[in-house]
């Protein structure tokens, strides 16, 4: 690829991207403005967080994740357990996914804490199945 082609490709990509930015609808623009205002307001009113929360959060997160894992495992019907075992390779991939954490990324435990409603739903869904 010549340098000229390269520059033309970059230019076209940039123009198309800018076009799509300029074409954002009012709903998105409004929500972005709201997000900005909320972030600035939160920053201006922030206070030092409680010592206890930050110190105990990782330990609590690990415990919650362990309990959650047990609930999902023990609460699942036998056929689902065997399906899980059959899918052991995928499960290990998930563990790898959870364990990996990029620099600056929220860690996996934080992710599980944020998703607690979803796992509550999952637990209820598993337990709602009558035993075979």
């Amino acid at each position: 690829m010549s340098e000229q082609d390269h520059q033309a490709f970059e230019k076209r990509s940039r123009e198309l991207f800018q076009e799509s930015v300029d074409g954002l609808d009012m709903r998105i623009r409004s929500r972005l403005t709201q997000a900005r205002s909320a972030a600035l307001e939160a920053a201006s009113s922030s206070r030092p967080a409680l010592l206890g929360w930050k110190v105990w959060a990782p330990a609590a997160g690990v415990s919650a994740a362990a309990i959650l894992g047990m609930v999902l495992w023990l609460g699942s019907p036998v056929q689902h357990r065997s399906a899980i075992l059959a899918d052991a390779q995928s499960s290990f991939e998930d563990l790898d996914l959870l364990a990996s954490s990029d620099e600056g990324s929220g860690d996996a435990i934080e992710m599980l804490q944020d998703d607690i409603d979803f796992y509550d739903f999952a637990d209820k869904a598993v337990n709602s199945v009558p035993p075979a």
Partner: peptide, 25 residues
């Protein structure tokens, strides 16, 4: 920070999809 948020969401989505495949119904 944004890229990390994107990856967190992608991870969350992947894990959710896996959990959903385990669930009945």
């Amino acid at each position: 920070i944004l890229e990390n948020c994107i990856r967190d969401l992608q991870r969350r989505r992947t894990v959710r999809q896996r959990v959903m495949t385990w669930l009945p119904g």
